[in-house]
Amino acid sequence: MTDPQNALDHLLNGYLDDELNEAERTELEAMMLKDERIGLRLEELAQANSEFIESANEVDSVPMTESLSALMDRLSAEESQAAFKDETDNVITFPIWRKTTRFIEHHRAIAAALIMGVGAVVLQPAFTDRQSQSIMPGTSGIIMAQSQLGDALETLASGSVVEGDGVRIEPRFSFVASNEAPCRVVDVASGTEAGRLIACRSDDAQWRIQVASYHQAPADGASENYQTASGPYHDVIETYLDQVMTSEPVASSEEKSLIATGWKQPGAEKGN
């Protein structure tokens, strides 16, 4: 290639890559008008560039290696969890399956109710809207004592269900958190949404939602297909349980006693 050709190619490549200033650009365009060979050369270089880019795009049609594909799947799953968490400040995720498995071993009666509930939980709408005044906590997570949810947390035994105003509430089980606070795992549902939450009772006798998640129920209302035992959302509550639930769920008899005494734990008064 001659030096003039080389210099011209530099200019043409700069033109293709948008690296020329306005004056250079104008000058080159004027040259192209005068000499069509310059335009043809630009076309060749542009085509070569385009072919090169297209050849790189060929890889899009080649499946990823298993290893890279697995890495992408992992990132995607983590992202789904993170996205869900971000979207649900006032929401709750759940399945307790690991904990529940142990729970089942010791509390078969309650477990039976729990298992029956899974897959059949389909809720009415208004879980977060119409019923928001009665069941959803404020930003502090505090649940109003006089609300339907507040009443259920305070007095309803696990495995029992209370329904009203299109909302179904079912405490699943109770446990004592690592900070000694009594906590409850509860399913809440409306026509279009189903949620699970963990609420703990603080020293000031208020129930506060610690973590929660909800899902949209299927549009076709196929309640039997509603899956609460799988999917990334469940990990949120399960993770929380892993962090704070250091012992088995309380037995039904113990829970009954706690409800009767306003959730005062044996020895609590002595200890304080």
Partner: peptide, 14 residues
Amino acid sequence: LGRARAMVAEEVGY
């Protein structure tokens, strides 16, 4: 860059 594009263009012979 100039050489690369020129080589492809010359090899392909558009």
